[in-house]
Nucleic acid binder design. Structure first.
Lengths: 196, 196
DNA sequence: CATAACTAAACGAACATTCATTTATATATT
DNA sequence: AATATATAAATGAATGTTCGTTTAGTTATG
């Protein structure tokens, strides 16, 4: 039998993400993707059931890669501030290293597709987070707040800084670049907020 | 001459926002909107140059209403924590009161259309924010950080909480409702982070 | 009765998806 | 080592549908 051409699969993936980031979900079509990836439209339907399945599979792969990168060198037995630091910087660096994937995920996260994406998430990640937070509270290293408040204060500011950076500008067209210094400065403030 | 039917304009607006929130930008079409609003497709082109113009005008109106609501009872001479409190709660309450508008704006904000939307923003809002922040730093009521860091820590957590709330769930499908208590609790942590 | 508001019907283009074929290669047979 | 066979991979062209937008004409009111 004929062998599968991995370059094609890679090309499809890369061009799909790029097209969605640059033109949005409504600028993304199967026919345009096929042309961009140098492939027949019919080929897309070998790998993906339909348009939505393609998008969701793309997202699942991106999410999984990001989750793995976030937990690099992380150990649940770490102190709260050290554990948060590791996760926070891992994630920030990953976002800066793979901006397209990041912007694609952010776009999906704020679209109606997010609901379907959430259903695909394995509960392990949530439980790990939950345990980390609850242990930190028990050890009195983290203020006593709900998981959602913790998450919002811990990570939302970082995503927002990355967003400003990738757009190259922030409020009112002001130029902005996210430096290491700013990253650590912000992390320090986040830890200050969350420490009892 | 014939008089303009305001109900129609309102219906167009309302159905457009609802359609975009529920089905995303790629589920939103001029023909579907016309049918939903009980209007001929051609009528849409009396009020809007084209599809993109319609979306951008919708956004501009939403943004303007939100900006106005944010500054209600705000006075630049307020202390930093009091001024932030007023803006923060104004904005949060507004988001909870008009969830559709909010979700529409958030979706656009994370799509490629955001770039064009930014060009439309009047510089006054940015300058007011800039002055407020710089004065607060001068008075030593706010840690010395860039505008972007301030914004990210001050408002990104709130938007994230509202997002969790409107979805009815947060990380891993966990149920979540944003209460007044949680709102104030989070604000307190944000102020703690930003106070020298 | 002038004119802006509004519409029904239509336009070609682009859409997601499918169908009938062709192509390439791993393996079985000589 | 050479050839045949089976079959997954890949395709070009077509499907009917929906898209954004326009045109030619009707309706309502100052």
């Amino acid at each position: 039998m004929r062998t599968r051409d991995d370059n094609k699969i890679q090309a499809i993936r890369a061009h799909a993400v790029e097209m969605i980031v640059k033109q949005g979900f409504d600028g993304f079509s199967m026919q345009k993707l096929a042309k961009a990836a140098g492939v027949s439209p019919a080929t897309l339907y070998i790998y993906y059931k339909d348009r939505e399945d393609l998008i969701m599979q793309l997202w699942a792969a991106s999410f999984s890669a990001m989750a793995t990168a976030t937990l690099k060198n992380f150990d649940p037995s770490m102190s709260f501030s050290e554990g948060l630091r590791v996760q926070w910087l891992n994630r920030a660096k990953y976002c800066l290293k793979y901006p397209q994937e990041m912007q694609f995920m952010e776009q999906l996260r704020h679209s109606p597709l997010q609901e379907k994406a959430l259903e695909m998430v394995d509960g392990g990640f949530k439980n790990a987070m939950y345990t980390f937070v609850n242990n930190a509270i028990k050890k009195n290293e983290l203020v006593k707040v709900q998981l959602e408040v913790y998450w919002s204060i811990a990570f939302a500011p970082m995503y927002n800084l990355v967003k400003f950076h990738l757009e190259g500008q922030s409020i009112g067209g002001k130029k902005f670049t996210l430096t290491d210094k700013v990253l650590h400065e912000t992390l320090a403030l986040v830890i200050k907020a969350l420490t009892p």
